[in-house]
């Protein structure tokens, strides 16, 4: 992101020099993702840094607004011999979805009916339901849902946990999993959702785990694993945490704030830090 001084246009005129100031502390960029040492044009943000910001904002906006390509995701799941149940929330379109979170938390009447009749066809002993929800970033779901699904599905099998077919919800919020889990009488709701995109993390996936979900549950009833993406938490680390939470909840008979995540945190391999170098 460093701005190099624009090449001289050949004029010897003083007016064409010194209009862009670089910062002598640019070496600190190694240690943080913050947009430090941007330099300045006058006192304003230089062109390249300004456009780089706009590109990141553009990506984040697209992640919110581009609709999930359901067909593409379904075909990726089909490659794993999985056919999801397609559902919709009560929100009609993105504009309403963004202003009415309450509508995104409930299934549409038609979807609830579809799911209710489906529920009659599954064996009562089935434990887990993985639900994929577009949430606030279709980009996150498009990028990670199929692969991450594969990973956790495998891990659940290893643990001997039985799985229902997954659900896929358009224009959904996290709490829509409560209604789905309630209708399916699921013991374990594992909900994959596109998180509110940050400027540098438009593809961040979140997992919300709820034990014996019921309509009307609050966020206090679930556990969240956040920031799953290549530059954040890996699929594997997230799956480890999830399985740890599931095993705990099966023993304790609950999930949520009372279930503290004490799984081993994985140390990240980062460049050695300087500590508070300002005190050197």
């Amino acid at each position: 992101m460093a701005d190099s001084k624009l090449s001289s246009n050949g004029l010897s005129n003083k007016l064409s020099e010194g209009y862009l100031t670089e910062n002598d502390w640019a070496g600190l960029k190694r240690y943080t993702d913050a947009r430090i040492a941007l330099g300045r044009a006058g006192t304003s943000i230089p062109t390249q840094a300004m456009l780089s910001f706009q590109m990141d904002h553009g990506n984040a906006r697209d992640a919110v607004h581009l609709p999930l390509d359901v067909d593409k995701l379904c075909s990726e799941l089909q490659d794993q011999a999985i056919t999801p149940i397609l559902l919709k929330s009560r929100a009609q379109g993105r504009t309403e979805y963004l202003q009415r979170p309450d509508l995104g938390r409930r299934l549409s009447v038609a979807s609830a009916a579809t799911l209710t009749s489906f529920a009659e066809t599954i064996e009562p002993s089935m434990q887990a339901c993985i639900t994929i929800v577009d949430g606030l970033s279709s980009f996150a779901i498009q990028s990670h849902a199929a692969n991450f699904f594969k990973q956790i599905s495998l891990r659940l099998k290893e643990e001997g946990i039985t799985q229902m077919p997954p659900c896929l919800v358009e224009q959904g919020r996290v709490a829509v999993g409560d209604e789905i889990g309630d209708i399916l009488n699921a013991q374990l709701m594992i909900l994959l959702v596109g998180e509110r995109p940050g400027l540098s993390s438009p593809d961040s996936l979140g997992v919300y785990f709820t034990y014996k979900p019921k309509l009307g549950f609050s966020d206090a009833n679930r556990n969240c694993i956040s920031n799953i993406r290549p530059a954040g938490m890996s699929y594997e680390a997230a799956a480890d945490k999830l399985i740890w939470l599931i095993k705990q909840s099966l023993q304790l008979d609950y999930s949520g704030v009372e279930l503290k995540d004490q799984s081993d945190s994985i140390e990240s391999l980062e460049e050695p830090k300087l500590g508070n170098f300002l005190l050197d």
């Binding site: 910062n23 502390w25 600190l28 240690y31 943080t32 993702d33 913050a34 430090i36 040492a37 830090k273 300087l274 500590g275 508070n276 170098f277 300002l278």
Partner: peptide
């Protein structure tokens, strides 16, 4: 602000701001 409260990351933003 820094996502992990890392002292180097925090100090880097503090210095940038002061300057």
């Amino acid at each position: 602000n820094h996502p992990t409260d890392d002292p180097t990351g925090v100090a880097a933003s503090v210095l940038d701001g002061l300057l």
